[in-house]
């Protein structure tokens, strides 16, 4: 059983003062799955990621990856934070390879792979640009590539496509799906966009705030690979309205 679950959260909780950012949350994430998290602003999505990545210490509960307790241990997952932080004095290439440079000796191979991935996904002409000269969407892509570059099996992506136009967004979604499929990663994905959540995921978790918690867990049974046609299918819309109902139809807890 457990060897199928890459990530396990056990009774995880976190408060900031009197704000309960996340109340007792237990969760299993299957290896190789794509799980999205949707929920209103302030319901504790980023807090959850901060704890899984080891940045933030939970008030209680534990985080297990591959049955290893990694609570408060950093560097175990690939985490793309909500804010697209690029190091201003490093070029696109330097930012993509930042993880390697911070943890070990940067190799020729690291660089070559970074060049490869940047060229493949539309940043080939910007390899030597400083972040200052990039658009918001490009910055997000660089941050995403940096997150992928370290080869962690579990990826936490906090609204990675927030700053993209619809066209680029769709391309990036396709790209992410192909990376996910080819490199057999497990993805936890925060988004405000219900379409995006359903389109990408095997499973969508709906959260609500005050206190922050998971209120619904919906398995998305749509055939892959998903295409533009998927977006207009009846099943797709069924899932979508189910989630929207949960998000907006709440009257009380």
């Amino acid at each position: 059983m457990s060897h199928q679950d890459l990530l396990r959260l056990e009774a995880l909780r976190k408060s900031f003062g009197s704000t309960v950012a996340l109340s007792d949350t237990s969760l299993n994430v299957q290896r190789g799955s794509f799980v999205s998290i949707v929920g209103p602003s302030g319901c504790g999505k980023s807090t959850l990621f901060n704890m899984i990545s080891g940045l933030e210490r939970p008030d209680g509960g534990s985080i297990l990856i591959d049955d290893r307790d990694v609570t408060t241990r950093t560097g175990q997952v690939g985490y793309m934070m909500q804010k697209d932080l690029l190091v201003p004095w490093r070029t696109v290439l330097g930012n993509i390879t930042l993880g390697a440079r911070l943890t070990r000796r940067l190799t020729y191979d690291d660089r070559r792979r970074a060049v490869d991935i940047a060229q493949r996904y539309g940043l080939g002409d910007f390899l030597h640009h400083y972040p200052m000269a990039l658009s918001g969407g490009m910055r997000q892509r660089v941050a995403l590539m940096r997150t992928l570059a370290l080869d962690h099996e579990l990826l936490l992506l906090d609204e990675p496509f927030g700053a993209l136009d619809a066209q680029t967004r769709f391309e990036m979604q396709q790209w992410l799906l192909s990376v996910w499929r080819e490199s057999e990663r497990t993805v936890l994905f925060i988004t405000h966009d219900v379409d995006e959540a359903v389109f990408l995921s095997d499973r969508v978790l709906v959260m609500s705030s005050r206190p922050g918690r998971v209120v619904d867990d919906i398995t998305i049974d749509l055939e892959r690979p998903r295409t533009l046609g998927t977006l207009t299918s009846a099943v797709f819309n069924g899932y979508k309205s189910q989630i929207l109902e949960h998000l907006h139809g709440r009257v009380g807890p």
């Binding site: 990545s53 932080l85 930042l98």
Partner: peptide, 13 residues
């Protein structure tokens, strides 16, 4: 401080 957080996220020594 965000850059220092980023370094931690990336598992830096």
């Amino acid at each position: 401080g965000d850059l220092l957080t980023l370094a931690r996220v990336l598992g830096a020594r």
